[in-house]
């Protein structure tokens, strides 16, 4: 069953006098449990597509369905609430809340979801354990390496058990070892929790792990390959 269905979406930015067509009629379906990489050169529309899939932006034309919900029908407030309960994010620059510890960062979404304190602390510690960073639970992001911060970001993204996780260039700032560790963790989460991951990436190592690679260029999907057995 498709968890995400994108129907003929266009995105035009009008920030300058000359309109920029970032997406030109994209159709895409993502199935539950997929480990999908969206690849393409810079300016191809990867991030725009990812923003739309993550409910951070809306298409100028076309529809985006997350299961039964058309995101275009939601108000700004409903969209925020929808993201909170359905979508996890992992960003290129980790983007943890700098004043919160690793445990608090992981707990943060759960608290927004009004999960009782005891339960959310237990859940946060389980996830930090799963990403191998439980011993740094009380460290703030500034006290962690890039790889460790990105692990916390993955734990945070998984904390609310979202429908799917959007990861925009998650390995761009990591060294090889951290990249491999992180990819292994995400692959494990995908296997263990059947979590759906959608990456935007340039990184061949991410592509090598992906079950499916969607190639985009000039705002259009120009390739869509599935790799069985990965």
């Amino acid at each position: 069953m498709s968890i995400i269905e994108v129907k003929n979406i266009y995105k035009v930015y009008n920030e300058t006098k000359v309109p920029v067509n970032a997406l030109n009629g994209v159709d895409l379906k993502i199935e539950e449990g997929e480990f999908t990489a969206i690849v393409g050169p810079s300016g191809s529309g990867k991030t725009t597509l990812l923003n739309i899939l993550g409910g951070l932006d809306l298409p100028s034309k076309g529809d985006i369905f997350i299961e039964e919900t058309n995101l275009k029908d939601l108000s700004s407030r409903q969209l925020t609430d929808f993201r909170l309960h359905n979508i996890g994010f992992v960003f290129q620059s980790y983007n943890l809340i700098p004043v919160l510890t690793a445990k608090e960062n992981t707990e943060f979404i759960l608290q927004l979801q009004k999960v009782p304190k005891k339960e959310r602390i237990q859940k946060a510690m389980e996830l930090l354990e799963a990403v191998g960073i439980a011993d740094k639970a009380d460290h703030r992001p500034g006290q962690l390496s890039g790889g460790q911060q990105q692990r916390v970001a993955v734990a945070r993204a998984l904390a609310s058990q979202p429908r799917f996780i959007i990861a925009d260039e998650p390995t761009a700032n990591l060294d090889s070892r951290s990249t491999n560790d992180l990819l292994e963790i995400m692959a494990e989460m995908n296997r263990k929790y059947h979590s759906t991951f959608i990456f935007a990436t340039h990184d061949q190592r991410v592509m090598d792990k992906a079950h499916r690679i969607v190639t985009i260029d000039d705002g259009k999907i120009i390739g869509d390959e599935t790799f069985k057995g990965r």
């Binding site: 993550g54 951070l56 700004s76 407030r77 925020t80 609430d81 993201r83 909170l84 309960h85 994010f89 960003f91 983007n95 809340i97 943060f108 979404i109 927004l112 945070r156």
Partner: peptide, 10 residues
């Protein structure tokens, strides 16, 4: 922006 993306309401 991150807080908004994560679901912190306005």
């Amino acid at each position: 922006g991150i807080l908004m993306a994560l679901g912190l309401s306005k």
